[in-house]
Write a protein that binds this DNA or RNA. Structure first.
Lengths: 217, 217
DNA sequence: TAGTTGCGCTACGATACCGTAGCGTAGCGT
DNA sequence: ACGCTACGCTACGGTATCGTAGCGCAACTA
């Protein structure tokens, strides 16, 4: 993503006072969102916590919804499970996938926005704008996985019968499921378990599940 | 109020007026929950919609939280993806799994409580009681899948390397993921896609993915 | 017929928020 | 110094809920 729907540059070319206010407001909103969810975010609470006057909030945002929307946007911006190290694509498929999944797991459990994930999901279920926001985020976040799977398929490391879309769902789905629904322990080792299970079937004709090292083409 | 936390039987042995009121209240609460989520449920709105006086609601429930909790409970009660037909256990693993997943997909997209799933998840993220409720529900809902996988493993239809817990996550996870997060189309055919992908690796030594018909034991 | 139980209705006092208006002030450029 | 800009603060009018109290009625029971 280049510029997330607004102007990240403009942010700096503003009156320093404005920038300060906006930042404080965003921080407070995000904090409230994280600690208590959607319903917990109140203009007055944001004002109190940010130290910014309520009127000032209304000077920058027209409604509570927009405020929350923007807060989510800022919260997600530094996220995504990319950026780790962009050189995995040519390596071992298994290792690449494990790496990506570990990133996702970290994001869903240790990141700043982790506590807000369920709230975000709920919001996305009703508000079209939120839905779009999540959609864009996912496109971005899953880009790495898509590329990795696609190239592995072309290379022949993954069977041609593997549907890339379904593959992503099967890798990422279990992680989200544990985080949101079953709430079973979710640590880095789960990445390996999932990928192993997935790969054992996804790797072309290899019988069990040893390393997929001996390929040429 | 004597007991509103359990006793499905008691429900009928009550004063008919009480039963009627309670039912109307539960229905209205569920409806509000479905159409607008947690925050949309208001005692006064429940009163209005159910035709029951606000005071009567307070006569049966001590707080809004309990009310919502009970409504969720009633909503989930008739759910679960079991009950379809209990004779799959001995059949083809693939078919059994597909059958179960189809049930789950129907539940998550067409059931009465489907629209409330994300709200439920969000609630479970904060409230311990809700968490417990969801947990119990899942135990029950996944029972079929657990049994099926366990017996298939013992029978030798599934590799011993398959972790039953992870297997369930990998089957069910993608479905929830599509429903809650990616929001891509989620129809019955997804059940087959997931199971095929899963089984292609989970079935012991079978190479590609033809029918697993030629077995004796 | 008298007693009991459960409900409906109206009316409150108490909060919590919303969104807006008005006034005064500090900082920055000219 | 002068003025513009963005803020802070106080104060409203208005709404939505909460949870409770009090009164009267209808139905079922003894």
């Amino acid at each position: 993503m280049a510029s997330n729907a607004a102007e990240p540059r403009t942010e700096e070319s503003l009156d320093p006072r404005v920038a300060r206010s906006r930042a404080a407001i965003m921080d407070a909103t995000a904090a409230l969102l994280i600690e208590g969810g959607f319903a917990h975010v109140t203009i007055e609470r944001v004002a109190e916590r940010s130290g910014v006057a309520k009127t000032t909030i209304y000077r920058h945002w027209t409604s509570r919804s927009r405020l929350i929307f923007d807060a989510f946007r800022n919260l997600l911006a530094p996220a995504a499970m990319r950026d780790d190290h962009p050189a995995w694509a040519e390596d071992d498929v298994r290792e690449g996938l494990v790496h990506l999944l570990r990133g996702l797991i970290r994001g869903l459990t240790e990141s700043a926005w982790a506590p807000a994930v369920s709230t975000l999901v709920d919001a996305g279920d009703r508000d079209p704008e939120m839905r779009q926001l999540i959609h864009d985020f996912l496109i971005d976040a899953m880009a790495g996985a898509r590329i990795l799977i696609a190239s592995a398929r072309e290379r022949g490391d993954l069977a041609a019968t593997v549907d890339p879309g379904v593959a992503i769902d099967m890798l990422v789905g279990p992680v989200f499921y544990r985080r949101l629904v079953s709430r079973e322990p979710l640590g880095p080792e789960f990445a390996e378990q999932v990928v192993d299970q997935f790969v054992a079937g996804a790797l072309t004709p290899r019988p069990p599940l040893p390393t997929s090292r001996e390929r040429g083409s």
